[in-house]
Simulated scan of single mutants.
Amino acid sequence: MQLTMYALTVPAFTRGFTALNGLLDKAEAFAADRGTSLAELFDARLAPDMLPLSGQIQRASDTAKNAIGRLTSLEAPRLPDDEQDFAALHERIARTVAFIETVKPDDLDGSETRDVTLSFPNLKVTFNGADYLLQFVLPNFYFHVTTAYDILRHKGVPIGKADFIGRLG
């Protein structure tokens, strides 16, 4: 397989969201088996200044769909951060993946040289597409997927590395 912007985005995002769905499934089964409140898991966070599980999934979604939007001429769907339960988190993942699956390799052709400007409260940064993907998007996406995993693991959900990595081959 040739290493392309498509190969670095669509399959990686899809795999990450498949893992997140599996983690949520295991968390729901854990809560049912233990009599734990799903709300406790939904709102769990690793530290007071970090986003809860729901926020981690929202940010993973935003990172993936907005990256596709910035790197292509496709308009990323706007998804309000109003999920209130696990079913809504699964739905957000499904909507994000549905958008990502509309992307064709041709949509990302040449995006490695496209300028992408991000504005933060005290900083404005312009990347070329390749640097944007490699230095911002992928680290940010995996940070939020990993943090969701870590929150659930910390709360006792029986998950392991294989649940994060997914099926090989």
Rank of each mutant, 00 (worst) to 15 (best):
P121E: 06
H154Q: 14
F143Y: 11
R59Y: 02
K65M: 08
P105L: 04
G55L: 03
A98E: 07
T146Y: 01
R15Q: 09
L123P: 03
T113E: 15
G160L: 09
T36E: 12
M50A: 08
L53Y: 06
T113M: 14
D43G: 07
M5K: 00
R15A: 15
A44T: 12
T72I: 09
T126F: 11
D107C: 13
F143P: 15
L41N: 07
L108I: 00
D115R: 14
D81P: 13
V116F: 00
Q56F: 03
R45N: 04
I100G: 10
A130M: 12
E75Q: 15
L118A: 00
F127L: 08
T117A: 07
L89V: 02
L24A: 01
Y132R: 05
G169V: 13
R92C: 12
F143R: 03
V125G: 00
F13K: 03
A47V: 14
A76L: 05
S54D: 15
N21Q: 10
P11S: 10
F141Y: 12
E40A: 13
R114H: 02
A60Q: 06
T147L: 02
D82K: 11
D82N: 09
L38W: 08
V10S: 05
R114L: 05
N66Q: 11
L74K: 06
N122A: 01
A88R: 14
G169S: 11
T146G: 11
L46R: 04
K65W: 13
Q2G: 07
L168R: 07
L3Q: 15
S119W: 00
A88H: 10
T36W: 14
E101Y: 05
F13N: 09
N140Q: 07
P121F: 02
G22I: 12
G169M: 14
G110L: 01
A64S: 08
P80L: 01
K26H: 02
Y132S: 03
T36A: 10
R95I: 10
P77S: 10
E75H: 13
A27C: 03
L41W: 11
K104P: 06
P80Y: 03
R34Y: 05
F99D: 02
T96K: 00
A130I: 06
G55A: 07
S111E: 01
S111F: 10
E83I: 03
T147I: 06
T4M: 03
T36N: 03
E83Q: 14
G16V: 11
Y132P: 14
L8E: 13
